[in-house]
Each structure stands twice: as structure tokens, then as C-alpha cells.
Amino acid sequence: MGTPTSPLFDIHIVDAGDLVLLHARGELDLNTAPSLDRALVPLHPRRCELDFAEVPFTDSTGINLLVRHHQLAADAGGSLRLIAVSGPVRRVLDISGTTGLLLAAPGPPPPGATGS
């Protein structure tokens, strides 16, 4: 699968059969959003997880793009969710009220983990 890139935003796509994982790096804004948009369009019927741990910034353009693709994926029988986000991106999700829609709930603790 092709990997769209730009000097400011890079996407690495891992197709694991029933799941497509997208690792993004760089700032997501008006100038870089088209590369993510192009990468997500053919994936709507698939289960997609986005790793934004290395995305230090997004603006309303990025949030709108993610919400739109989340809905388009659901309409096509797929799914789109963020599985990891940087602190600044989490803040934008919280402020925009989209955290519950876009960010996956944390999974159960790993085996052997103890509570504090």
C-alpha cells in the first residue's frame, strides 16, 4: 500500500489484514491534511487505527477531517479511531468535544499488571 508523505507530515501504513494501522508524524493542519485525507478515503470499509503519538499539533482542519472520516468509515461498515495521541492533540480533542468519538478507550491492563 502506498505511503503518502509530505515534508511536514508523514504517514506509514501497516495493513495487517483485518486491521489497517496508520502511524502519523508531523503537524496536521490545513497544509498537510490532504495527504491524510487521500490515505483514508480507500480505507473507509476497513477497521483503521491511527497512531498520533508523534503528531505534536492539529487544528480544527485536522479534527474536522477525522470526524468526517470517522462517519464515512461507519457508513461504509468500517471504523476509524485514534489509539494514541500526543498531549497537545489530546487537548484539542478535549476542547472540541471529540475525545469520546475519536479516541479509543484504553484497553485492559496487560497481564501481570497491578493496580496502584
Rank of each mutant, 00 (worst) to 15 (best):
G2W: 11
G2N: 14
T3L: 11
T3Q: 15
P4T: 01
P4H: 01
S6G: 12
S6C: 07
I11C: 12
H12S: 15
H12M: 10
V14I: 13
V14H: 10
A16F: 01
D18G: 15
D18H: 10
L19C: 07
V20P: 03
L21C: 04
A24T: 13
R25L: 05
G26N: 03
G26D: 04
E27R: 11
L28S: 01
L30H: 11
N31T: 12
A33Q: 04
L36I: 04
D37Q: 10
R38D: 14
L43C: 06
L43A: 07
R47N: 09
R47L: 07
R47M: 09
C48R: 06
E49S: 11
L50M: 09
L50I: 12
L50F: 03
D51I: 04
E54C: 09
F57S: 06
F57L: 03
F57H: 00
T58D: 07
L65V: 02
L66S: 06
R68L: 12
H70Y: 07
L72T: 14
L72M: 14
A73F: 00
D75C: 03
A76Q: 06
A76P: 05
L80I: 02
L80N: 00
L80T: 01
L80E: 02
V85D: 01
G87Y: 10
P88R: 05
P88M: 04
P88L: 03
R90T: 15
R91F: 05
V92R: 02
L93P: 01
L93Q: 00
L93F: 07
L93H: 01
D94Y: 06
I95A: 09
I95T: 15
I95N: 06
S96K: 01
T98G: 09
T98H: 04
G100W: 02
G100N: 10
L101N: 05
L101E: 07
L102V: 08
L103M: 10
A105S: 12
P106Y: 06
P108I: 10
P110E: 13
P110Y: 11
T114D: 11
S116N: 14
